[in-house]
Write a protein that binds this DNA or RNA. Structure first.
Lengths: 404, 404
DNA sequence: GATTTGTTCGTCCACGGAACGAATTAAATC
DNA sequence: GATTTAATTCGTTCCGTGGACGAACAAATC
């Protein structure tokens, strides 16, 4: 027997697993109803899954007419993944299990020495996170690492990550895989944040969205049809290089993009200085504006105009249902509200603009989402073209008490 | 037997059809080798396909050791589709058959009365194209119509199509389906052009590309991972609304986008007038520049700078492997070369920029591509998630003598 | 004779449906 | 209130069928 004839079992198995992940605990009869497969097919598959340790009996139904049913549940720690959010100042790691719970979040300041030190730090944090849940690290099958910068898939290097010295010259993916002993996926952190919001955050209700992260710099995560857009060199969503805000043809705009120069935190501070003559960091400018400082208010207005233009740009190109603002600066309601007011003045179509729901956990949750989807795919769909096991919906996750 | 158990046959059938479409004429033994299915499975399926009239014997192999093989081929006119490119000034229609040949291109000036008159005209042209190939119109299964504007899938109206009066208030899709008696798909013409270039044009070697059409106005077709990006309201690629070029917050920018106002043909002519005081249309400006007119040259420089910024914008957001310039103005080498020179000055990553290979036939070929893919899907994949029959590659099509 | 094509035959996987026993609740009767 | 009966649901066994594969073999050609 070759590929094709076993494929129906594969499909059946996937749809059973998906149903259990979504609806556990659930009886075999219910699975049969949901999947449309016959009861004895379900029984066969359930027997196999139980033998292999993926699921187990957890109880029985009661209280309604008819025979009680045995209910099955995922064995959550049969396989887990590690999710990591590497920032310029701190690293966070978490473990996510097969039932899609995100567990044991640990955190540390980023090792300033960069290079292999950070690789080792990540590996240590992952082990620590696993240990904290009482899990043997061998249960970890995959690590997803969100990084600020553009991972280059061919070489494993991470380009444009100024806060992590040395990562543009070592094969980070290989080093991490080696250090952890499992496959690792390195992905841009803003992309992951978008994936996170799409799973259980502000974008859970739409498959076409863009997340704009505004902090020290500006970045974007683009999703089309529920899939992340990575681009040919993992550089999609580099909104900092949108050619307006400052003169895009000035040579410096090749290093720090035209928009980033005027919309990044430095640019905002500079604008305030130009208007008022005073030096202040972004937080101080927000405070000053709240206290009625004219120039600070003007600075925020100007900033929001640029942000609105950035939103208009992505809306013009990918026409998303929603644009999510995130990052320490992007989530400020002063900005979000200004964008609400300004966007209709420069873009004719309605675009829903919202602040991030997951905040600083976005990238970590996104890493979990990517990792779990990838794990499911590796374990069960096994190369079936187009077949995927959807993650449980935001509604289900809320029900299970996973707060954002 | 229900869905699941028949699925392996479905998959086998799809992969046999794909192989025949790609490699016809081909023997059953070769199909078996290519698909990995066993010889007798292929024989069974071939028998069924022949009975249903999809394929037929066309010859026998000879000249090599061993028994001669019977070769099979698609019955090309067993089912065909109609492809239509509706422009503001003319309508073109073509028939494309199952073997993916695009036949019998007919053309007419667009009926200026708009509305149902244009619907009727399209239907007539489609019938005419079929008749020209000696095909009974009942062979046509599907029509794909490229239109300038944004089709609204919910209502079937076509928004923002100023040259076709009335189409923003009638259900065009339904009217066409009714008039033709077959399902019809209405799609933005620039999107289709992108799809066409991706199939057998300048973008045949990459799955992430953006086509920018520069003519009277400016539009974009975005492909990510080999799929068209339509956006939540079919308005992806509305590059005219990129917020630079003119002041995006001027109220008029809500009607004609900021970039379109300065990069559309009117904007170019206006720029020339401002610089030189002379009135000229775009073609005359190109001619004047060729004759050494300083202001005309300056106008083109300015235009190319804006175009380069538009390219930079899409490159920053979706990071395509290639940007294809098309449209009567966009393909001019004077512009393409200037963009080649200017883009590296305002965008740090390499992006391949090329002129369209299909020219004015792009949308028509794209419509054929969309239609054929959809027809294949309807006939054989029949709702199998993720399964697709790929169109024959550009190389195969070239071999068959389909010139761009 | 070597090689390739295409058919026939037997086998095996996998799904579905019917029938049935088991387990439980709801209703009816004593 | 206790007991019997009906209804319902769960899960298994058994059998039929679709469909793929491999082996063997006939046919056709160099």
């Amino acid at each position: 027997m070759n590929d094709v004839s076993r494929i129906s079992r594969r499909i059946a198995l996937c749809s059973v697993m998906e149903t259990i992940v979504h609806c556990a605990p659930i009886s075999r009869a219910s699975i049969a109803k949901q999947t449309g497969l016959s009861k004895q097919t379900i029984s066969e598959i359930a027997r196999q899954l139980e033998e292999e340790g993926w699921i187990r009996e957890t109880g029985r139904t009661s209280g309604h007419v008819g025979r009680t049913a045995v209910t099955y549940d995922i064995v959550p720690d049969r396989a887990v993944i590690a999710a990591v959010d590497l920032g310029g100042t701190k690293v966070r790691a978490a473990i996510a299990d097969l039932s899609c719970q995100v567990l044991s979040d640990v955190e540390e300041p980023t090792d300033k020495r960069g290079g292999h030190h950070v690789v080792a730090q990540i590996a240590r944090l992952c082990r620590q996170a696993a240990a904290q849940e009482g899990l043997d690290f061998s249960k970890v099958r995959l690590a997803v690492i969100g990084v600020p910068g553009a991972p280059e898939s061919a070489t494993g290097r991470v380009l444009m990550a100024p806060n992590i010295p040395g990562w543009d010259s070592i094969d980070v993916t290989a080093a991490l895989s080696q250090e952890l002993g499992v496959e690792s996926i390195v992905e841009n952190d803003v992309n992951l944040a978008a994936r996170g919001e799409h799973w259980i955050g502000a974008g859970a209700d739409c498959d076409d969205l863009v997340l704009i992260a505004l902090g020290t710099g500006i970045g974007g995560g683009v999703m089309v049809g529920g899939e992340l857009v990575r681009g040919v060199s993992n550089a999609a969503g580099e909104l900092g290089f949108l050619p307006f805000g400052s003169d895009p043809f000035e040579p410096q705009s090749l290093h720090m993009g035209a928009l980033e120069r005027s919309l990044g935190s430095e640019g905002i501070a500079e604008r305030y200085k130009e208007l008022s003559g005073r030096t202040a960091d972004v937080k101080a400018i927000f405070d000053a504006a709240a206290d009625g400082d004219k120039e600070a208010t003007k600075t925020l207005d100007e900033t929001a105009r640029l942000l609105a233009r950035a939103v208009a740009s992505v809306a013009a190109i990918t026409n998303p249902a929603k644009v999510i603002l995130s990052g320490s600066i992007g989530v400020r309601s002063e900005l979000v509200e200004r964008v609400h007011a300004l966007l209709p003045l420069c873009f004719p179509r309605p675009v829903s603009v919202e602040a991030s729901a997951l905040g600083s956990k976005g990238a970590l949750i996104g890493a979990a989402a990517v990792g779990l989807a990838s794990l499911h795919a590796a374990l069960w769909t096994a190369g079936m073209q187009g077949a995927t096991i959807a993650l449980p919906s935001a509604a289900i996750m809320r029900e299970r008490g996973v707060a954002a």
